[in-house]
Amino acid sequence: MFHPLRVSEVEPLTDDAVALTLAVPPELREAFRHTPGQHIALRRRTAHGEEIRRTYSICAPAGPEPALRVGIRLVEGGEFSTYALKELAVGDTVEVMEPTGRFVLEPRPGHFAAIVGGSGITPVLSIAATLLIREPTARFCLIRSDRTVASTMFLEEVADLKDRFPDRFQLVTVVSREERQTGLPSGRLDRERLTGLLPALLPVAEVDGWFLCGPLGLVSGAERALRGLGVERARIHQEIFHVDEAPSAVATATPGARAPAHSTLTASLGGRSGTWPVQEGESLLETVLRGRADAPYACKGGVCGTCRAFLVSGEVTMDRNFALEPEETDAGYVLACQSHPATTEVELDFDR
């Protein structure tokens, strides 16, 4: 569900990024209470009536008074990011979806670590800050990669965590496009480099949870490095912020299954069900949206996971999946925006 919220602050972070703070009225505090790592979808309508949605992670610590602060980086040709950086001002109103997402860490004792690239710092900033504030024995190691120092988002906020929790917060910074006089040598954090670097920084096997966030290349390389170092899959959590490479198909139907000539979708959403014919070439999300404008979605790119639904019956194929964990797909969940019918009848449940 979307709610109109007032912009209370627009703070420049870098030449191409801002932090946007949204005021939450008392009657909506419960609706916008978030778990560290969750995101919100922002929506606007253009002068021509076109609806634009974009997903941004909440960077503020989670607490009893929900603080909705997100980091937005300008994307070349990006309609919403251009609007946010060049037009949005204090006092404007933005339509905001309630927090969602499963790239989260409920604060608990332990040793945790994150490997992030660029704007991937945004959800991890909330995760680390909330953990360190609430759990006096917890430790957190942040390994971050950026192009240059000038392009690094949330420099002051991360430095503040280092000052407040010097014994429990470890910070490792790498830049890929400029040389530094101190710290690690410049260059990308790829699988090979991380395989050698991580054991020198912290006891890899003793880390209770790894959080990987950023471009696809960094996240996949970091996951392969961790798996090669013996970290079990259940301790690795990931969220993709950018997908530059060509999509890879992730099939959830029987191998070799072909799309039927005619198929029907039944979907449950908000306690109500509906049945619609699936038109040629459209995703199951597009089918639902023809009958239910309130169907949940944000990116439509298989990245954010907002349109996750349980496959009750039938079979589907997914074009790509960068949002669901293997245990979720094994349990029967699919991304409606990437799913196409592989049987004549398919049933989805958005409420599970």
Score class of each variant (00 low, 15 high):
Pro61Trp: 07
Asp160Pro: 03
Glu98Ile: 14
Gln170Gly: 09
Ala89Cys: 12
Trp276Asp: 12
Ser263Cys: 07
Pro61Leu: 10
Met153Ala: 13
Leu198Glu: 05
Pro109His: 00
Pro25Trp: 08
Glu157Asn: 09
Asp15Gly: 11
Leu226His: 05
Arg308Leu: 13
Phe211Pro: 00
Asp190Ser: 06
Glu135Ala: 08
Gly332His: 05
Leu132His: 06
Glu51Val: 15
Ala60Ser: 14
Ile121Leu: 11
Ile121Arg: 01
Glu87Val: 10
Asp92Thr: 00
Leu42Met: 05
Gly281Pro: 11
Ala309Ile: 06
Leu229Ala: 04
Leu189Thr: 04
Leu161Arg: 07
Gly230Ser: 06
Gly91Trp: 01
Leu218Phe: 06
Asp349Thr: 13
Val288Cys: 11
Val316Asn: 00
Arg29Asn: 05
Ile72Ser: 01
Val250Trp: 12
Ser313Met: 12
Asp92Ile: 01
Leu142Glu: 04
Asp330Lys: 15
Asp208Thr: 05
Arg44Tyr: 09
Arg352Trp: 12
Pro166Tyr: 12
Leu202Val: 14
Val24Lys: 03
Ser57Cys: 06
Arg134Asp: 12
Thr35Ser: 01
Pro215Val: 08
Val94His: 02
Leu212Gln: 02
Glu325Cys: 07
Leu197Tyr: 03
Leu105Arg: 01
Pro199Ala: 07
His48Leu: 15
Gly120Leu: 10
Leu265His: 11
Asp190Asn: 12
Asp160Lys: 13
Gly305Gln: 10
Gly209Gln: 02
Gly117Ile: 04
Lys162Phe: 15
Arg292Asn: 10
Arg177Ile: 05
Gly101Val: 06
Val288Ile: 14
Gly120Pro: 08
Arg224His: 15
Asp92Tyr: 03
Leu132Asp: 06
Val124Lys: 07
Ser8Arg: 15
Leu105Gly: 00
Asp319Ile: 07
Gly49Trp: 11
Leu229Glu: 05
Thr182Ala: 14
Ala200Trp: 11
Leu284Glu: 09
Leu132Cys: 10
Gly110Cys: 03
Val172Thr: 13
Gln338Tyr: 13
Gly110Phe: 03
Leu161Glu: 07
